[in-house]
Design a protein around this nucleic acid. Structure first.
Lengths: 259, 259
DNA sequence: GCTTATCTGCGTAGACCATACGCAGAAGCT
DNA sequence: AGCTTCTGCGTATGGTCTACGCAGATAAGC
């Protein structure tokens, strides 16, 4: 572990509030938080596409170019918006709580956040988590897996597994919900229409597995939360199996049979 | 299963080549495939941001607005680009092959496709898979899980699990690789820099799990393929556990303990 | 063979967008 | 008081997508 004094890029310093504000010039009329909050409000109300620099500026009653005194680039603003909109993670693993419920709660928190603010799914991921709330989420996710015997890289992979699945799940359901809102239908109707389209395009060709699926799926329960939980349960089962294997005796090449 | 004759939206009909081309006017000087191929070529060579309608048009030697005779919207073009760039899925499950190697191959195919054409990760997902290659991938994914006793919604969730993880994994590694290329460093250097940034920002605060991670991770093996395979193995283990449970005797509410 | 309906490529134009640059004036330091 | 530094922001550049409509090409109908 070498010295932690690394020169941080503008991005990160900004997000963590580590910018030494100058004392010489006139006072700023805004704060970074206000700018970010205005962006979030617009995104929440009218979608991410409505978030333009001029729109944010006019919302705050300033000129467009003034925003660039607070944010180096529009993309940095979007990253900050995502970080604060995600908010803090759910409660961390309790003192005598198992890793499984803690990680499940963490995963549920992920979808909940994305569902609260669906526009976030359209902000392209810019890299590994480095902004304050993202790092807090990372901390709690890793904390859930402490003392399980999993190696560092394995703990990270497990975290990514859960958050990646949460993201793709939230994205799918949000896309459907949005499509429904746009055409004035219920999400169920949109889902049903999808299955009908799929049936139509696969009708002429050889798609046995899809046809089996369509035939079987007459009872479109589509309690989407239940489906999400199924997938989460499978991930956790897999992690559990790994933990048990590790506990039994450090088996090195357990993963070599997957190729 | 009701009548498969549903009026398809423009989008889908176009992707499947189901539009009856007219016989009255002059002949088209281009084909949709040419347009899509030009888009892919630009994206591959200069990134998705370089793909503008005028850029694609000039690549083909036509005027910008001519493209709109082939594609209703830029976003539809992007969707078509992704569909053909993804290409066909890897070989389906063999006659006497187990579900596990088949699904593993399917997952590997996902990351391989995204690695071959990293720009694809920036095209926002527009909804459930409906374009030709996407549907083929769906078919093969489901085929891998035929006869496992999993219900329809469970098979879909398992597929999403794998593809979602593949996508987030490919995205992370591609982001790192791209950042490396931009600054003329190796991916290892970029990864290391990230850990240093993380150490710096977490230094003052209480982030025990992250610090534990950083202390432990001195041996930055970072054979990223190995990490990916670990996660995939965990998913497959989880699915395997589910299949065994189902086979043992139809246990209805096995997932209720995950909440 | 002529008329007519229809489709093609595409020029023009409108309504946006992010942001580089530089300037007037405010605030503090010396 | 004078100098430095920072702020807000007006202007301008070089993009973006795409609506609209027109000239000319093509083939069907008579």
């Amino acid at each position: 572990m070498d010295g932690p004094d690394v020169e941080l890029p503008e991005n990160i310093a900004l997000a963590w509030g580590l910018r030494d504000r100058p004392s010489r010039g006139p006072k700023r009329s805004l704060s970074l938080d206000q700018v970010v909050a205005a962006g979030i409000q617009i995104a929440q109300a009218e979608g991410l596409a409505a978030v333009s620099m001029s729109r944010v500026a006019s919302e705050l009653g300033v000129a467009t170019m003034s925003l660039y005194r607070y944010v180096p680039t529009k993309h940095d603003l979007l990253d900050l918006m995502v970080d604060t909109a995600f908010g803090p993670p759910p409660p961390p693993r309790g003192a005598d709580e198992g890793w499984r419920p803690a990680l499940a709660r963490w995963g549920e928190g992920n979808v909940a956040a994305l569902r609260r603010q669906p526009w976030m799914r359209h902000v392209p991921i810019s890299g590994p988590p480095i902004n304050p709330n993202q790092v807090r989420w990372l901390e709690y996710g890793l904390a859930a897996l402490r003392g399980t015997g999993l190696r560092a890289s394995e703990r990270i992979a497990a975290i990514m597994l859960v958050s990646g699945y949460a993201r793709s799940w939230a994205t799918l359901t949000a896309d459907i919900a949005e499509g429904a809102a746009r055409t004035g239908q219920t999400p169920e109707q949109v889902g049903l229409r999808y299955w009908r389209y799929l049936a139509t395009v696969t009708a002429p060709g050889p798609y046995p597995a899809i046809h089996e699926l369509l035939a079987e799926g007459d009872e479109y329960d589509d309690d989407t939360d239940l489906e999400w939980r199924f997938g989460l349960g499978r991930i956790l089962d897999g992690v559990a199996a790994m933990i048990e294997t590790r506990a039994a005796g450090t088996v090195r090449d357990a993963e070599s049979r997957d190729a």
